[in-house]
Amino acid sequence: MNWAVFGIFTYVFLVLQTSLTPVLELPTRYGVVGPQFVLLLGVIVGMFAHPRITCIAWAILGLLVDLTSTYALGPTEPSLTLVGPHVLGYLAAAYVMIQLRTMVFKQHPFSTGFAIIVCGVAAELVIVLILSIRGMYDPIAGFSALPQLALRGIGLLYSAVVGVILAVPMLKLTLLFNFPANTTHRPARWGK
C-alpha cells in the first residue's frame, strides 16, 4: 500500500470528522450523531490491503481518533484525552474486516456500507466496554453504556449511508493506494 496516499486521505477524513460535524450531525433522543469518515477509510483499506497492513492502518486510524477525542470528566477536573480505546476497538474491527472481506463483493458500494456497520459494531463494543470499565475509577461525565451503544448504533447506520455515497468515488480512487494487484485489478462488479 502507498502510505503517503493513505496519509493524505487520513488527514482529509480526520479533518472532515472533527470539523464538518455541525453541518452533518443529526439530533437523536440519545444525543447528536455524525458520520464517522475514518471508518469508511478503514473499510476501504481493509477491503483490499494485506491483512497485516490492514491491522496497522486501522491501529493508526484508531490512534488518531483517540488523540482527537477529549472527554469531560467531573465539573472541576481537567478533560481527558486517552490513547487506547479506539486503537483496540479499531483492531477488533480490522480483525472482523479481514474475515468479512472474503464474503462480500469488494467493488460494490453497498458492501462498503455493510462493512462499516459490521466493523463499527465490533469497534464500538470494545470502545464502550473500555470506557465503561474506566468509569469505575475515572467516570466520564454523562457516559452510560446502554445509551452510548444506542447512540453509536444510530451513528453507524448514518455512517453507512454516508459511506455508501462516498464509496462510489473512493472505490475509483483505490488505484492510488497501490493495493496488491490480485485484488485491485479485479474487474469491477459495479459502476461499469
Partner: peptide
C-alpha cells in the same frame, strides 16, 4: 501497551493531551 494505555488513570494520561 495499548491495553495498558487504555486503562491508565486520568492523572497519568497528560501525554495524550500533549500529542493531541
Amino acid at each position: 501497551l495499548a491495553v495498558i494505555l487504555a486503562f491508565l488513570p486520568a492523572r497519568m494520561s497528560g501525554y495524550a493531551s500533549f500529542i493531541g
